[in-house]
Amino acid sequence: MSSFIVNEKCNGCLACVQNCPNRALDYRDHAGKRVLMHNMGLCARCGQCWRVCPEQAVEFRHLLESPWQEVVALGLTACRVCGEPVYTFDYGKKVSEKLRMPAEALCPAHRREKGLRVWSRIRPASPPSPGGAR
């Protein structure tokens, strides 16, 4: 979805197309219609289209405050204790490959807790503070 939006005042004069310094605007006359086209990958958001439009038809604020667009959706691994999402399946798989051992799915709080439990078994008389030993 393009963030370049014109209102009903646009009369297809092409002032925006002719003045776009990055050629991010183009048009096509086809089947009795003039179609205005915008390429976000070329757009510098310089605002020339908005400045030169004689009809004030360019709603430039949409290029400044455009909505979020979903890019990709990946499956999540949850903390095995509390169920909080910790990382994606693919990320866990990559980490496991790099470590050559299975990545343990623990959220930061439960990872710290586990570390403290291990420490208390090694040095039961002097556990470190929850802030962690350095």
Binding site: R45, G47, F60, R61
Partner: peptide, 12 residues
Amino acid sequence: VRQCEKDMVKTY
């Protein structure tokens, strides 16, 4: 997006 353009700052 750009603080150096007077008309854009004034409007947005």
